[in-house]
């Protein structure tokens, strides 16, 4: 499903290049659950961003569902990723001014779904994650764990094939973290490919596969 070949990313400092990603070769199949680990600054978040096309590599090939992503026109690429990827962040990144319901609805608005369709999808998600009672609350009124659940619900609203999670439990206590990990396991069983970046060995163990990164390279 995802294939990276000889991927490089660097920043130029004068004549020197400082590499963030160095010769990454990686292949991830549909239905996989991958954990990326490594110390701070090892490039794991960058790798995740590149996979999610929030960031572009300087060199290399990236195939997503058999298509050469870097050769695509920006608009088409955006459409492709919007349709198939969901993002979960360490600090949830909910929009403070919108309610739980509206937060989950936002990506659907950008997909130009009709309001009836949106309502059906959002209600379904609220149900599934047991947050129906909280739908009219604002993010600030929720605990961190609850906010992350909303974040995941929002990421799933577009029914993505791949869920990208950057330290999804980083701001949570261990009990809340466990809940999220169990949720991920369940989602994975339902067929969602999950790629997560984490510091925690325990959380990494939920994945089928662990990638260790150091200095921009996969060990």
């Amino acid at each position: 499903m995802i294939k990276l070949e000889q991927l490089f990313k660097w920043y130029s400092q004068g004549n020197n290049r400082s590499f963030v990603l160095k010769d990454i070769n990686l292949s991830i199949e549909a239905g996989d659950f991958v954990s990326i680990m490594g110390p701070s600054g090892s490039g794991k978040s960058t790798l995740l961003n590149v996979i999610g096309m929030l960031d572009e590599p300087n060199e290399g090939k990236y195939y997503f569902m058999g298509e050469d992503v870097l050769a695509m026109k920006t608009k088409k690429r955006n459409q492709l990723f919007q349709a198939h990827m969901g993002y979960v962040f360490q600090s949830y990144h909910l929009i403070d001014e919108l309610t739980v319901y509206e937060n989950i609805e936002t990506p659907l608005i950008y997909k130009n779904l009709s309001s009836a369709d949106r309502k059906a999808i959002v209600s379904d998600l609220l149900d599934r994650f047991h947050i129906v009672g909280k739908k009219d609350l604002f993010p600030a009124q929720l605990s961190g764990g609850q906010q992350q659940i909303v974040g995941i619900a929002r990421a799933l609203a577009g029914s993505p094939k791949v869920l990208l999670a950057d330290e999804p439990t980083g701001n949570l206590n261990s009990k809340q973290g466990e809940e999220i990990m169990e949720l991920f396991t369940q989602l994975n069983k339902d067929g969602v490919t999950i790629i997560q970046v984490t510091h925690s060995e325990k959380n990494a163990a939920y994945g089928h596969r662990i990638l260790e990164m150091l200095d921009g390279q996969i060990k």
Partner: peptide, 16 residues
């Protein structure tokens, strides 16, 4: 800025 970032990740266009 943060909100703009989120909205872009969620699929908003520049003109949006």
């Amino acid at each position: 800025t943060k909100e703009i970032g989120i909205r872009k990740v969620l699929g908003s266009t520049v003109s949006g």
